[in-house]
């Protein structure tokens, strides 16, 4: 465990909790893509199946349980508790266009052709693109609430920090997982345009709105 990995995990945790608190406090999930959140729940579910088979550390297990719990709570709030505020009309990205190709790729390109391993690979690939419905929704409506942009920034930062962690681990431990690294690069690249807007607009006190 190095500092980049730890801050990456914490940034991920901040993002997830920030989103949950925002929905809870405002009693609304307006501007949030339910499809992205369902995909994140699917990502955690398929990746953390090893919670029962492979014990790593108390830290690891606790974080997995928190990520899973928060992710399911978020989906519950969007589709059940605060369903009336869900902006389904603008959440029009076709999730099957991501899930099906990613599933196929996980079958073809993996470390080992076993059910758990294919599901783990699926989760890595799916995570890399799961934010697309959310970004698409912002492009469609042309704006995002500031708190939503903080959520997105923390979520994007997490994988960027993991990239530095992997460089670190390659040098100091001779460790590298090509599947995770390539998917992590794709994931981080998808946030670049958003990072630019966040730094130039939101950090200067302006709301994130796109030109019409």
């Amino acid at each position: 465990m190095n500092v980049f990995r730890l801050t990456g995990d914490l940034s991920h945790l901040v993002a997830i909790i920030l989103l949950l608190l925002k929905i809870w406090k405002t009693r609304s999930c307006a501007g949030i893509s339910g499809k992205s959140q369902v995909m994140f729940a699917l990502v955690f579910t398929t990746r953390y199946l090893d919670l029962f088979t492979n014990f790593i550390s108390p830290y690891n297990s606790v974080m997995k349980v928190i990520y899973l719990g928060c992710s399911y709570a978020t989906v519950y709030m969007i589709y059940m508790k605060f369903k009336a505020s869900y902006d389904g009309n603008h959440d029009t990205f076709r999730a099957e266009f991501l899930i099906i190709p990613v599933g196929g790729l996980a079958f073809l390109v993996n470390h080992e052709f076993t059910p758990l391993e294919i599901l783990w690979t699926f989760s890595i690939y799916l995570e890399s693109v799961a934010i697309l419905p959310q970004l698409f929704m912002i492009t469609k409506t042309g704006e995002a609430e500031t708190i939503t942009t903080h959520y997105l920034f923390a979520l994007g930062l997490y994988r960027a920090l993991y990239l530095i962690n992997w460089i670190w681990r390659y040098y100091f431990e001779g460790f590298f997982d090509l599947i995770a690294i390539v998917a992590g690069c794709v994931q981080t690249i998808l946030y670049c345009d958003f990072f630019y807007l966040y730094i130039t607009k939101v950090l200067h006190g302006k709301k994130l709105s796109l030109p019409a």
Binding site: H111, Y162, F175, D177, I179, A180
Partner: peptide
């Protein structure tokens, strides 16, 4: 155990 797998990560 395969060293080149990110299974100890989140």
């Amino acid at each position: 155990k395969n060293k080149n797998k990110a299974k100890d990560e989140l």
